[in-house]
Design a protein around this nucleic acid. Structure first.
Length: 319
DNA sequence: ACTGCGTCCTGGGGGC
DNA sequence: TGCCCCCAGGACGCAG
């Protein structure tokens, strides 16, 4: 399940291959994968053919690549959301692919069976290269969207995503790896107070991408475990100090995961070269029902919450 | 404002 | 061996 660290790992991988790539051909094998495109497949294709990619950017779990057709400033971007099972793979003479589907010189021979969209063209050096969107469960999507100034009006600090975002991403909040949300920053303080004012269960808030983005079920459980907070506790009953601890735990668990290439449980998550990440061996809560808590040895519990599983230590994370 | 649930989708795995 | 059912859940929409 790609959450922020997995998406960021993929974005970093794409940085090496996409800038300067020109699209010659668009092949939508599964129309649902471009279902959000205004104007449908035709508009999607028309906007991409002939376009040149810029540097991939990201906010939360949304990724986008600016495109330009005739030079000048990019005004649109290819937006990619991987959802549950989306993967992006780059094939071409300059990539070194592992495992299946590898043809001579890294050029793909048989696309993966869950390939939904193929963007084929040439890389910066003119070599054949293609970007494959593979998505078993078809929850993910691609769309071309206009770039606009970010609604929150915050300009990125050093290393922050550009101040422009695609229109379809503008309602998504900043994420905890965004320098704008660095601990103790003004935007971070605003976020803390906003959470403190809510009486919703704390995990619901962590998962609300309009409040803070990038956190999914896995990293929410990990952050709550680290901060010793029960997922169901109303946020307004948790001290500011504790909420601060929680947000910082969420940020650090995600940046640690980025360092090792994200969390892979199976072949559903791999980076652009088809390699797995290693964070799953560092998980303390997610997926560990009835296994001993690594702090207190109590067996961890699993409960249903919001239609999904929550894993927690009943002793360290009391209600 | 807040909560809960349905919708989209597929394939892997458990149970029989 | 085979078949059915359930499960995983990110984002979003809608009802209460």
């Amino acid at each position: 399940m790609p959450e922020l660290p997995e998406v960021e790992t993929i974005r970093i991988g794409l940085e090496k291959f996409l800038p300067g790539m020109q699209i010659k051909e668009v092949n939508v094998l599964r129309p649902q994968s471009v279902r959000k495109q205004v104007g449908g497949i035709e508009a999607f294709t028309q906007k991409l053919v002939g376009a040149t990619f810029g540097i991939p950017s990201r906010r939360g779990k949304f990724m986008w690549v600016p495109i330009q057709n005739q030079g000048g400033q990019p005004t649109q971007a290819l937006v990619l959301h991987l959802a549950m099972s989306g993967q992006l793979r780059v094939f071409g003479e300059n990539t070194s692919q592992q495992g299946d589907n590898q043809g001579v010189g890294g050029v793909i021979e048989t696309p993966h069976r869950h390939t939904r969209v193929i963007l084929a063209g040439r890389d910066q050096k003119g070599k054949a290269q293609s970007l494959h969107f593979i998505d078993q469960r078809v929850f993910g999507h691609l769309t071309v969207s206009r770039l606009i100034p970010s609604e929150d009006g915050l300009t990125g600090g050093k290393g922050s995503p550009d101040a422009t975002v695609p229109t379809c991403v503008d309602h998504i909040a900043r994420d905890l790896l965004d320098p704008v949300l660095a601990p103790k920053s003004p935007a971070y303080q605003v976020l803390l107070k906003r959470i403190k004012q809510s009486k919703s269960g704390i995990k619901r808030i962590l998962l609300d991408q309009r409040v803070v983005s990038g956190i999914g079920n896995i990293y929410a459980d990990e952050a709550l475990w680290r901060a010793r907070i029960n997922y169901a506790r109303p946020a307004n009953g948790i001290s500011l100090k504790k909420l601060d601890e929680l947000l910082q735990a969420a940020g650090s668990v995600m940046s640690e995961a980025v360092k090792v290439g994200g969390t892979s449980f199976d072949a559903l998550y791999v980076n652009v070269n088809g390699e797995s990440g290693y964070f799953s061996r560092s998980l303390n809560a997610y997926g560990r029902a009835s296994q001993p808590c690594s702090r207190c040895q109590s067996p961890l519990k699993r409960e249903a919450f919001m239609g999904r599983s929550s894993f927690f230590c009943p002793k360290c994370q009391r209600r």
